[in-house]
Every structure is written in C-alpha cells, then in structure tokens.
C-alpha cells in the first residue's frame, strides 16, 4: 500500500484517451476532464507499482530468455484482477495534482472450481485534490489462487493461469 502524488497532465490524458478508443476531439484540448478510468494511469507515479520496470531491478519479459529471468519465477504468486469500480465525486481535470492513498479493504475466500481456494482482496484508492477534497474513490478486487493450476512458471501479479472460472481470469 502506498501513497503518492499524481499530477493530471494534458498529454497523459490525451494518450490515455487514445488508448481506450476516444478520438482526439474528445479530450485533446485539455479542458474536457479525463476518461472514466484515467486514474489507473496514476500507477506511473506509484513508487511501489510492481508492473513497471524499475531502475536497476530485473524485469520479467523476454530478452535473451523468454522470461527475462535467469531462473523461472516461483509459481503461486499470481494475482488476478477480478473487479474494478470507481465513484466520482467531481470530474478529474487537467491541472489537478491528486494525492492517491491506498487503503486495504475487505478480504474473503471462496472455493475454486478446480480445487483449492481463492482469496479475494480489496484495495481502496482515494484520489484527493490539493485542497484535500475527494475526487475519485477507486475499488479494486484481486483474486489470489491458493495453488496454481496447470501453471508454467510465473511470478508476480497477473500471472496465474485462467483456470479457475469466470471469477478468476488473469487480466
């Protein structure tokens, strides 16, 4: 769980809007706010975000080897994105400097369809503006399988196979 500062920049909003399918006319002039899921890109500013290569650290990804790692990662560390939701308190605007605070939420378990159990873990991220006013509340639920079913090597997040039914596919 981390706390970080996330400046809402016009270029970042434009690039994000293109990636999710908007024409440049939608968000290109910097006055129209941001697409509904834009706060995901706050991950760029999260020092602990684990799905970004970091200076001086090994990265999973093909290079000389398919995994990029000298030894296969330990299976079992995979988590899957199961749910995501947002509550909007006011529109996000270019120029906002948001502070993101991640708060651990509920945790619960369910039996997996192919044996083992699934642990669901909720994280709430509050995005507040410079005055402390709440702008967006994001809720994310990830699933962690208790065992990796028919898994090849894969460490870190989002790595477990899509073997546990609709509630748990790697996303």
């Amino acid at each position: 769980m981390s706390t970080y500062t996330f400046p809402v920049e016009a270029g970042a909003v434009l690039l994000f809007s293109r990636a999710v399918g908007y024409p440049d006319s939608a968000y290109g002039d910097g006055t129209a706010g941001a697409p509904p899921t834009f706060t995901q890109s706050g991950a760029q500013f999260d020092p602990e975000f684990h799905l970004r290569p970091k200076y001086g650290e090994p990265w999973r990804g093909s290079g000389r080897t398919p995994s990029g790692l000298p030894i296969p990662a330990t299976p079992g560390g995979g988590s899957l994105h199961a749910e995501q939701s947002y509550e909007y308190h006011r529109p996000v605007r270019v120029g906002d400097v948001l502070t993101a605070v991640q708060i651990p939420g509920k945790e619960w378990e369910k039996a997996g369809r192919r044996g083992g159990s699934l642990t669901f873990r909720e994280t709430i991220t509050e995005f507040r503006d410079a005055t402390g006013e709440l702008v967006v509340t994001a809720r994310s639920v990830v699933v962690i399988p208790s065992k990796v079913v028919e898994s090849p090597a894969e460490g870190g997040a989002n790595g477990a196979p899509s073997a546990e039914g609709s509630a748990a596919v790697a996303q």
Binding site: F49, R52, R60, G68, P152, N158, G159
Partner: peptide, 25 residues
C-alpha cells in the same frame, strides 16, 4: 498503447514470447 498510457507494463499483455514460452498462454 494501453500499456504505455496506463503504466501497466505486465509483459503478458505486450510480449508474445513471454506470454507463450514463459507463462504458457
């Protein structure tokens, strides 16, 4: 494009060699 814009660089989404040969997808 989405990886770059969102900052989620998980190679499962952009690196076919990794997805097939290291992760089994």
């Amino acid at each position: 494009m989405y990886a770059g814009a969102s900052g989620d660089y998980n190679p499962l989404h952009t690196d076919d060699v990794y997805a097939r040969e290291a992760a089994g997808y």
